[in-house]
Design a protein around this nucleic acid. Structure first.
Length: 104
DNA sequence: CTATTGACGACAT
DNA sequence: CATGTCGCCAATA
């Protein structure tokens, strides 16, 4: 348990903060951590996804509003988002700017 | 230590 | 709008 690096913990911490019905971009998380360019590293961290349920990784999408990827399949990710009230159309988030959780 | 990889971003074509 | 290329970071082999 918790055999994670500080970077990973940071990423997961940011993801957990995303409110229900809202989404965050990899870029946003990376920026919140302090490295706006570490988007790939963030994706890598989530790919390990130690706790797929405790951590709402499905709320993390690409900067252009597309769904991106998911360890268990992007399809599952879309379903989870829809369950939270986030509409997904043509593999893109509907009203992306409205559901996007901006940095605080 | 070096090379490869990967749930990405931005820009060029 | 789709595809290709470069960049950038961390983890892993």
């Amino acid at each position: 348990m918790s055999n994670l690096t500080e970077f990973e913990k940071d990423v997961f911490g940011a993801v957990k903060k995303i409110p229900k019905g809202r989404v965050m971009t990899y870029k946003g998380i990376a920026r919140k951590i302090g490295c706006s360019k570490a988007v790939r590293a963030v994706g890598n961290a989530l790919n390990k996804n130690p706790w797929p349920i405790k951590i709402p990784c499905h709320k993390v999408v690409k900067s252009d509003g597309s769904i991106g990827g998911y360890k268990s399949g992007a399809k599952k990710k879309i379903k989870l988002l829809c369950d939270e009230g986030v509409e997904v159309k043509n593999n893109k988030v509907v009203d992306f700017d409205k559901v996007l959780y901006n940095l605080h």
